[in-house]
Amino acid sequence: MIEFDRVTKRYPGGHEALSEVSLKIAQGEMVFLTGHSGAGKSTLLKLIAAIERPTSGQIIVNGQNISRLKRAALPYFRRNIGLIFQDHKLLYDRSVFDNVLLPLHIQGLSGSDAAKRARAALDKVGLLKRERARPITLSGGEQQRLCIARAIVSRPALVLADEPMANLDDAYAHEIMEMFRAFNQVGVTLVISTHNLDLIRRYGGRRITLAQGRLVESEPAPTAASTAPLPA
C-alpha cells in the first residue's frame, strides 16, 4: 500500500524534516506513527497524501509513484485517501451534513445517493442527529468525528489521521479509536500519528517511531487484531 525508499524531505531554509526513511505498510494494516513533536510525523503523512513532495527518494502509494504524479492527476489520487486533520479543517459556513457531502460532490455524486451515503457516514460517527447543526456549535470531540465522517464518506482504502486524539479527553479518544478499529476490520488501511502511547498499548497495532526525522523503530506488524488487549 505504502512504500518509502530512502525518503528525505528538506524544507526551503534547510530544515530536514525526514532523513533517509524507508518503510513499508501493507494493505489492511493499522499503523501508529509516534515520536516527539517535530520528529517528522506530520511531514510523513503529508508525503503520503502528496501534499508535500520528497526532496529525494521514492514514495509509492496505491501503486503510484508520488514524485511522478502530474498536477492534474493529484485530485484523483487524493480521492482514494481519507484525511483526518488535527485542526479538523471543517467548513464553518455550512451545515454538518454539507461538510460530509463535499467529498461526494467533488467526485461528481449528488442527489439522493449522495445524501444517503453522507447520512450513513454521519451515522457511523454518531452525528446523524446533528446533521443540520453548524460545525461551530459542536464540541471538540464531535468536530473530530465530523472530520472522520468526511474522510470516510467516499470509502477510501487508505485513511491518514494526523493527531486525531490530540486535545481530546480520554473518553472521546477511546470512542475515536474504536471507530478506527472498526474501519480497519472492514479492510481500510490506517496510518495514525499520535503521541498517546497509552492508547497504542491498549489497541495494539504496529508502531513506527520517528526521532529527528529518522526512523528509530518499525515493529513488524503483529497480528494486531488478535493480540490487542480489549480496552477496559
Binding site: R79, L102, I106, Q107
Partner: peptide, 16 residues
C-alpha cells in the same frame, strides 16, 4: 481560501 484548501485536500480538481 479555507474552502479551496479543504476541497483540494479531498480531491477537488481545479475545474471544480
Amino acid at each position: 481560501r479555507d474552502e479551496i484548501e479543504v476541497a483540494r485536500l479531498i480531491g477537488a480538481t481545479d475545474r471544480f
